[in-house]
Design a protein around this nucleic acid. Structure first.
Lengths: 245, 245
DNA sequence: CAGTGGTCTAGACCACGTC
DNA sequence: ACGTGGTCTAGACCACTGT
């Protein structure tokens, strides 16, 4: 490993452990290490890259902090999966007002294709005319219809998604396992709106009922937005939780 | 004496750096190190406690991650203040739909005292009859009335708060500087409701307008809830942002 | 038992801010 | 020049999981 980086002049200092981290993240991006697999031990990686174990450890520490890896003392380090219980609620912050958190069931309403509208162009960094796949579905919490959801993804990076989606519930697990796209973080903007009549009919609620409008942009490992979704969520029996620290 | 570590279970093994961290956190709790001051250098702390610099570093790393400390290369490590720009938005997640984030102005409506109702007893872990201080205020974002806010604190830990509050805007800074209470994290539950007529009048909006109801419990360094607040927030010009990672 | 991650140490050098 | 935090190394031992 070359420790001198002829990058720039003034800001061109990159710690070795960040270079190591970038190498390891790339192994996740390009599918060398797929979700769930056991990666080499710290000493092994250190030897391969010609750095000390402590440097590898610091890179792994950051990746654990970003929920990309999971380590277990005595066993090894594994690539995080999006279908594990502890990961499920990383991106699903809606919990019942009474009782424990539950993961929602999904009912697919429709899949269509089209070209990116203004909103999709902005959220997904697409150009006019770029193809998108749109999905509409309803989600239930503990058996009660609660969420009407609309989402759009670039057709370019999810070829043939429509066919796969029929029985899927956890989309991010599908993105990772079938398309090699790992959603690493997302940003949500929440407003309060009156429920449109169309969604009111679907959810069995009165038109104009105050609901949460949750607009999410999901970001992949490489920083590219890969999904835009808008969820209209009734908060009669549940609430959106946010921990600030 | 292990008092309030949420992880201490069967093995009774506590890493040295966590013990060091606990010692340092206690210096924040008891006011030995007050907000804004420069704390001793890593080597100094290590020598004082009889551990290596690396162990102190790991304790400081966690505290930096919890926004309790701020380090600057070449200068030293400082106790975080709640009035710094980068901290302000740690607990204020409402930003304008267009334009950069701005911190809101506050207009005090009233301060009163009473005994904890059922909701306050649950949120603040109080008993029936425990005294509380209640504050009502309006908040504006970029000059536009946006939020009607109600908050309650235990009178026991904030004696005489009512007198101080007149011109305060950033309450958490006041809690820290005047009462030695550092809010380290908080939990918010968000629902959508129709704006009550009273608040509608105050905000100059129509009764029943869909708004966000943001219920927050603020937690101090020792894990005790120290404030409960409910904010009714119009999202005509702004949105609640939440980053999931 | 061997192998893994987790902790702890001691010392070296680097980048930065201050004197 | 000096002291600070930041990085990197090498080696030791501890705690845990498998065989």
């Amino acid at each position: 490993m070359t420790s001198d980086t002829p990058e720039g002049s003034s800001p061109g200092f990159r710690p070795l452990y960040r270079q190591v981290k970038q190498i390891l993240v790339n192994r996740l991006r390009d599918g060398t290490w797929r979700p769930g697999v056991l990666i080499p031990s710290e000493v092994q990686i250190a030897a391969d890259l010609g750095v000390s174990q402590g440097t590898v450890r610091k890179a792994l520490d950051e990746m654990r902090g970003e929920n990309l890896l999971i380590s277990q003392q005595g066993r090894g380090t594994f690539v995080a999966r999006h279908d594990e219980a502890r990961i499920l609620f990383q991106f699903f912050k809606i919990i019942p007002k009474i009782g424990p958190p539950v993961f929602p069931e999904s009912e697919l309403r429709g899949v269509s294709t089209g070209t990116a509208n203004a909103q999709e162009q902005r959220a997904l960094r697409l150009k006019a005319g770029d193809p998108v796949i749109r999905i509409a579905r309803l989600r239930s919490l503990a058996g009660r219809l609660t969420i009407s959801e609309y989402l759009s993804v670039p057709a370019g990076i999810f070829p043939g998604l429509g066919a796969d989606i029929r029985v899927e519930n956890n989309l991010y697990d599908l993105y990772a396992s079938r398309y090699g796209i790992t959603v690493s973080r997302s940003e949500e903007r929440i407003t309060a709106v009156g429920l449109p009549s169309e969604d009111a009919t679907l959810l069995g609620l009165a038109t104009g009922t105050p609901v949460l409008a949750i607009d999410r942009i999901a970001i992949a490992l490489d920083g590219q937005p890969v999904e835009w979704r808008r969820s209209l969520c009734s908060t009669a029996d549940c609430a959106y939780v946010s921990e600030l620290r």
